[in-house]
Structure formats: structure tokens, C-alpha cells
Amino acid sequence: MDNNAQADERLIQYLDGELTGEELTAFEQTLANSPELQVRLENLELAKMAAMHYGLRQQVASVHHHMMDELRGKQGNQNSGRIYSLLRFTMKIAAGLIVFMFLFGAYEWVNVSSAELAQNNYQPYELSVDRGVEGSSVIEKAYANHNFKTVIAELSKSPGPGEKDRFLGGQAYLSMHEPANAIREFNEVLLDPASHYRDDAEYYLALSYLQYNEPLKAQKLIDQIYNDKDHLYHDRVSYWTVIKLKLLILKKRGE
């Protein structure tokens, strides 16, 4: 081993803290008096620092991989947590709606009836009569005065009542809560396909069936009016009426 190599070995021993006691003291004295040795020591110290720097980088890189897995997992959990919270919130609203709809449906189920549907959709037919005008029949005048008993009596007496008298008779029976007779009169009106009172008769016939507790027969007419936008009574039949009628039919089937 040459002198340089020997000096390097000593320098490394010193760098590594392997010199002790007299050996250390002697070397420190030599070092203090040799700028060349000091430079060589500095160079070796730089190499040691580089190794330490590399070691730290390696350690951080190793922890980095673990931490990325951990942090990605946490982020995933946070995202799924957020999704879960949103889902839970949506489910709560949906459950609330379902409960509300169930309770509302149950309420409607209990309360829906033919009489209630007939009552809620009934508006008395208003007859416009120019008083004193020639040509108004007794039935028309009696109906205009809401004298329904007279209407019925006059209709019974009449040998061949016209479509208008029959229609007003049907209205009078409906007002007097005699749906069977009302049904008969409205059906008579509907026998004429060109009747002027066709649309009116269909609507009030449906109400008469409801009053007579025959919702299935009423449903056919109500659906027809609901689906025909040109029908005179289309606006009086709401979607809700159609639904309630279906509910009523279901209820009747279950009875």
C-alpha cells in the first residue's frame, strides 16, 4: 500500500470515527498541519454526505410508495363516504315520499266512493232561457226555475218528449238523487248520434252512474271525455278524477 492509500485509509478511519485515544490525537495534529490532507478529508466528507443524501432519498421513496397507497385509499374512502352520504340522503327523501304516497293512497283508498266522486264533479246544468220568449216549453221554464218536481211530472205526462226535454228531465232526476231514472233519460238522449246534447248527456250520464254506484260504467265515459280534447266537458275531467275512479274500481273489486 502506497503512502497515499495509507493516508486515505487513515482519513476514512477518522471520518468513520474509528480512531480513538492517542491515535486520534496524533492524526488530528497531522491533519491540522496538512492543508492537503484537509482537502482530501473534505472530499471524502462530500462522498459521505452524498451517500447519506442518497440513503435519505431511498428511505423517503420507500415511505412514499406506502403513503401513496394509504392516501389513495383514504381519498377513495372519502369519495365513497361522500357518495354514501348522498345516497343515504336521497334514499331518505325517496323513503319519505314513498311513506307519504302510501299514507295518501291509504287515505284516498279509505275515503274514495262513488257518491264522493259524483258529488265533487257535479255542477248543476244551467239552462239559459229568455223569459217570455215564445217557444220555451213548460219543462224548460220549470227547469230554469229549479222546479225539478214539475220537470219530472211534465216529462211523465208528455207523450213524445224531445231530446232537450229528456235531457232536462235527466238533469232533474240527477238533482233529485234519482240516478236510475237519470240514466234512463240520458241514454235516451244518446240514442240519437246527432243529438245537440250528446256531450252534455255523456258527462251527466257518467255522474249518474257514479251516483248509482256503478263506477265501471262511469269509467268508460270518463276516460272517453278525458281522452277527447274536443269534448265540451274535457276540462271538467282531471287526471286526478281518472286516478280516483280507478282506485274506486279496485276498491270495489276488493270488497
Binding site: 468513520d16 462522498a47 459521505k48 452524498a50 451517500a51 447519506m52 443524501h53 442518497y54 440513503g55 435519505l56 432519498r57 431511498q58 428511505q59
Partner: peptide, 21 residues
């Protein structure tokens, strides 16, 4: 410095980091 360490070779890197770091 990092790339110089890489050039040093696997055994040297292992020995130096194990000893000094």
C-alpha cells in the same frame, strides 16, 4: 449527486448507504 450514486453500482450503493445512512 443522485445520478452519480446510481452510476456507482448496486453493491457500492448498498454498502455506503447501509454504513453511512
Amino acid at each position: 449527486v443522485q445520478s452519480l450514486m446510481e452510476k456507482l453500482g448496486d453493491a457500492c450503493r448498498k454498502i455506503l448507504t447501509a454504513y453511512y445512512y
